[in-house]
């Protein structure tokens, strides 16, 4: 899954691996803090009726997470800043955002107009924008996929998916 080192990509560096290591380790430590705090609220010791209290197990998990992230953090900080590997270049990050932002928009739209309409639009636009396919190709494919999904989930397997005004009109 890894191995997308972009050697051919000459665009300027956006974030170094070191910075990212530090950020991730700190986020994990913060999470560990949340886990430990909630565990302390629930109790971390033996209780007569319950046995090990509800916070017992997460408490130690939180500790392990905190300690192991701290080690990673210290290692990253001790790492010499130059030559420092690149985590992501500006260009590559742009490409990631180019899928990530539409995905977020898709999920927002999905909760309003339902999954079927949103998916058809999403597929058609994705094909048009990234694949340079004309909408005359993208729209039929998008609508087709949505239709198949609709038949499969709503009609055949009776699994309800998020629906919007269009489906409401159609009586679903």
């Amino acid at each position: 899954m890894s191995g997308h080192e972009d050697d051919t990509d000459n665009s300027p560096r956006l974030v170094s691996v070191r910075t990212m290591e530090v950020v991730v380790a700190m986020v994990l430590m913060a999470l560990a803090g949340v886990v430990i705090a909630d565990s302390l609220r629930l109790g971390v010791r033996w209780r007569p009726i319950e046995g090990p209290a509800a916070g017992y197990f997460p408490f130690y998990i939180g500790l392990i997470l905190a300690v192991s992230s701290a080690v990673t953090l210290i290692r990253a900080l001790a790492d010499k800043p130059i030559p420092g590997q690149t985590f992501v270049t500006k260009q590559a990050f742009g490409r990631v955002l180019a899928v990530l932002i539409p995905l977020v928009v898709y999920i927002i739209v999905l909760s309003v107009v339902g999954i079927y309409v949103a998916s058809a639009v999403y597929i058609a636009l994705f094909m048009w924008y990234f694949g340079k396919y004309p909408l005359t190709k993208g729209v039929p494919i998008g609508v087709g996929i949505s239709l198949v999904l609709f038949l499969m989930f709503e009609v055949w397997f009776l699994v309800p998916l998020p629906k919007g005004p269009l489906e409401e009109i159609l009586g679903y």
Binding site: I115, Y122, F126, I145, L149
Partner: peptide, 9 residues
Amino acid sequence: SIIAPMIMV
């Protein structure tokens, strides 16, 4: 560019 949005969906 066809298969990726389908996978997302």
